[in-house]
């Protein structure tokens, strides 16, 4: 990534040499976010690759979630938030006035820290997206979409016989997979995951991680995580954030075995964070 645009912050980002063979899906350049007068992100520039998992790591409050939320313009829903800079998905600027955030969010799905299924049936949870976007023209088609999504999320076998039960009646791990199925159902290109396993036990976490690995075949996945082990297990690329700056970005192996910035090294070795 040495050929990436020069960082426009006072602290330069360290880019490791490119190792991914996948095309670039999301290209951020000079992204800055302000909450009221507080600057939360300073000139983030990074290319995120398709059909791979990119992990954002860093201590709490470092801006990794803020950056994630820029990618589907969720920050628009916060009144005081202002976003500057450019983010392009497939060479299309998402911060343009002409881009409808509703359409963008259909292309960029999101999974949140806490499982947040709608208080409706399992079926309706998954069918909601296709319904509002008109992706299925008949009941059979919708049934097929629901089944496919639940299968992709690895939940079908567990819930096939109780699709009409409320989504909140599932266990935490199942709920998180249901939420992933809901995100997949609208057939997004990018899936953002904001600490998807932080509220789950290790077994459920393992299931989700497996799922993330499977989803990599078809989607561009970006995952924010506090667990370095998780980042190491599931991601191909890793970005380390610190105090609103992107400190180091590169292949996960490189970052973990050969961090070039002092702060990255300290964080990975557990000296702070």
């Amino acid at each position: 990534m040495a050929d990436a645009a020069a960082p426009n912050s006072n602290k330069a980002t360290v880019y490791h040499p490119l190792q991914s063979t996948q095309p670039v899906k999301v290209a951020a350049s000079g992204v800055e976010v302000f909450y009221a007068d507080q600057q939360a992100l300073h000139g983030i520039t990074a290319n995120i690759h398709d059909r791979s998992v990119t992990a954002f790591i860093g201590p709490s409050g470092c801006g990794k979630s803020t950056f994630l939320r820029c990618i589907n313009r969720m920050n628009d829903t916060i009144d005081t938030a202002r976003v500057r800079g450019s983010i392009r998905i497939d060479d299309e600027e998402i911060n343009d006035r002409g881009v409808d955030p509703v359409l963008l969010r259909a292309r960029v799905g999101m999974v949140f820290q806490k499982p947040n299924p709608f208080p409706k049936s399992i079926y309706d949870n998954v069918a909601y997206g296709p319904r509002i976007h008109g992706l299925a023209s008949s009941k059979d088609e919708l049934d097929a979409v629901v089944e496919t999504s639940l299968r992709k999320a690895g939940l079908w076998d567990e819930v096939a016989d109780r699709l009409d039960q409320p989504g909140n009646s599932l266990s935490g791990g199942q709920q998180q997979r249901l939420v992933i199925a809901r995100a997949i159902a609208v057939n997004p290109e990018v899936i953002l995951m904001d600490e998807p396993c932080s509220a789950l036990d290790p077994i459920a976490t393992a299931r989700i991680e497996e799922l993330i690995d499977e989803l990599r075949e078809n989607y561009c996945l970006i995952i924010v995580t506090h667990s370095m082990a998780q980042a190491a297990r599931v991601s191909q690329m890793t970005a380390f954030f610190h105090l609103g700056h992107l400190v180091e970005y590169g292949p996960t192996e490189e970052i973990f075995t050969n961090p070039r910035d002092r702060r990255t090294q300290d964080y990975i070795t557990g000296r702070f964070g």
Binding site: K114, Y128, H133
Partner: peptide
């Protein structure tokens, strides 16, 4: 809870 709004907005509502 805001998570419900986020969930809906997140799938493109």
């Amino acid at each position: 809870p805001p998570s419900i709004r986020e969930a809906a907005l997140g799938v493109g509502a």
